[in-house]
Design a protein around this nucleic acid. Sequence first.
DNA 1: CGCACCTTTGAATGAGATCAAAGATGGTGG
DNA 2: CCACCATCTTTGATCTCATTCAAAGGTGCG
Lengths: 243, 243
Amino acid sequence: MGAEGLAERFGKHARLTASEQAALDRFEEQQRSYRRGAVVIREQENARELFVVRSGWLHSSVVLGNGSRQITRFHFPGDLVGLPLLAFPDSPETVTAVTDIVLHPFGRERVGALIAEHPRLGALLLSLAVADRVAFADRIASLGRTPARTRVAALLCEIYMRMRGLGTAEGGPIPLPLTQEDIGDATGLTAVHVNRMMRVLAEDRIIERRGGMFRVLDEARLCADAGFLDRSPVETGWLPPPR
Amino acid sequence: MGAEGLAERFGKHARLTASEQAALDRFEEQQRSYRRGAVVIREQENARELFVVRSGWLHSSVVLGNGSRQITRFHFPGDLVGLPLLAFPDSPETVTAVTDIVLHPFGRERVGALIAEHPRLGALLLSLAVADRVAFADRIASLGRTPARTRVAALLCEIYMRMRGLGTAEGGPIPLPLTQEDIGDATGLTAVHVNRMMRVLAEDRIIERRGGMFRVLDEARLCADAGFLDRSPVETGWLPPPR
DNA sequence: CGCACCTTTGAATGAGATCAAAGATGGTGG
DNA sequence: CCACCATCTTTGATCTCATTCAAAGGTGCG
């Protein structure tokens, strides 16, 4: 549970041929574990490896000149981490393990080889990168134009939806291994204010919190409060045929 | 001046073969003009075409449930517009002409064909999509963790840098065909507050404004105020060989 | 069991929003 | 060419949401 590989992820969007499946599996030959809190990729440092997340949560963050931190994205099993290394030799972001994690590292040039040998997977990869970009755009809108309560709701909603995509029980408890400071750094709020907003959401019986967990009591209202938009599934009609 | 095509853009990052060059040029066979203010792609509507920007400015925006608008990205000549259509059949964003523009429309499946026939260009496209993602991340950090003055400075700085990349004179005047409301929608501020911040920047002799133009008086200080990070040029070491 | 870290709550402060209204500017049609 | 009107910019006054500062509980780990 809570573990997914590249092939499973890609397979959600297109039926893979045996050879494609094999090519993706080859990205997961290596395996490496990190402890909660470990820094996997450090901002501004030269890095050559990307990773497939096998299990656990991570986040990408940026530290501003004024010392404050902004978390830009959370990563879950099946996600690709370190994509910016395909564009920049020095990482523009820090990638940190939120929980204990297991990753599959692989070299940049393997992506090039994948695209050359399996253009359809290359196209699918582009598709996923673009979907990611849309997620970033949604977050920009959330930060730029919505009040605190909405932003916190949006983050919880995103986590809820993503965990459900990985197969969490419907109304069951969801792990929330983030400190309120983390949530603040993701939503552009202070930890204090995050605390107040979470309390309000709990008082309104939209969520319930206990320990490092939360439970969604009223999915409809959470989505409404969060301004959640269900992005239709990734489009694959334009992909070239498999080779 | 101020016009650039796909081949020029790609050529900045890798030396193109004749056949690659030709393949990219073929994306610009069609041509279509729009007036300032025209909506090129409408949010939530089904769209099948992407565009290469030949000349002029555009922006992508999202309208939130509360009626407010967030501009997520500006597009300049040589940019690809409508990439989200590679992942979603219905556009998640509205694309609007900021000035009179000329675009080259093309179908989604052409991207698939390009990747299949020219994997290296596919990889480069992925690279550019990833670079875009990093730009989004930078903006998230700006919105989430910096004060108003910094955000406005960051936007002007971005425009300044991008215009320079397209060949604007060093200390010369730069067109700014945006209303203060537009700038507010991009920076997550009100038009009124944008006005105040621009005034402060002008009073501090960092920029100068006249008509629909601005001039950067003190590039170093603008960059410092904006927390500008010069992202190193797009990395191409991992690309597969040209076919 | 004790310490470090996290959560929670209260009170004061402040950055940016909102409300309001007076100038500029520019595009359009007569 | 000019007058008019819509749109945009500018400035002031007030209000509010979120921050900051401070301090008291919790929690879990070594």
